[in-house]
């Protein structure tokens, strides 16, 4: 486990309560400050209000009208101020079309929840943030 002088803030957008709890615990144990949101609208509001968010953990299917894909499209639009913010899609909907759309939009990683250990995903995110150009 890496020791950090300063904690990184990550926004976790996930609606499944037990999963949110597990993700939050694991991320905190790995030196992250965690903000959680259940919907795209809520997440967008937090982004506006909190300015030290360094990464986003995002699910695909979310309550409300908007999916993770809509959120990423907004984040990665040409005039967005969050264009460079790394986005990690952690979802169980591995439809090929969705994966492709996410990657085309420029997300940093896509992984299927059921196929990965939680600590694997957290470590990967931490590594990515440590070496962003990799």
């Amino acid at each position: 486990m890496k020791s950090k002088t300063k904690n990184r803030t990550i926004l976790v957008v996930e609606d499944e309560r037990p999963l949110v709890q597990a993700i939050e615990t694991k991320l905190e144990k790995n030196g992250f400050d965690v903000i959680t949101a259940r919907t795209v609208e809520q997440a967008a509001r937090y982004l506006e209000e909190i300015n030290n968010i360094e990464a986003i953990w995002l699910d695909h299917y979310l309550p409300g009208d908007k999916t993770g894909l809509d959120f990423v499209a907004m984040l990665k639009s040409p005039d967005s101020k969050w264009k460079k913010l790394p986005v990690f899609i952690v979802s169980n909907t591995a439809s090929n079309n969705n994966v492709r759309s996410y990657l085309r939009l420029g997300v940093s990683k896509y992984c299927v929840k059921a196929d990965h250990r939680l600590d694997e995903i957290v470590t990967e995110i931490a590594d990515f943030l440590d070496n962003p150009e990799k």
């Binding site: 615990t25 299927v112 929840k113 059921a114 250990r117 939680l118 600590d119």
Partner: peptide, 14 residues
């Protein structure tokens, strides 16, 4: 199906 499976997975892992 995958969502509850992920829950069991991650909690037993933790």
């Amino acid at each position: 199906l995958r969502t509850p499976l992920s829950t069991v997975n991650w909690y037993s892992e933790m």
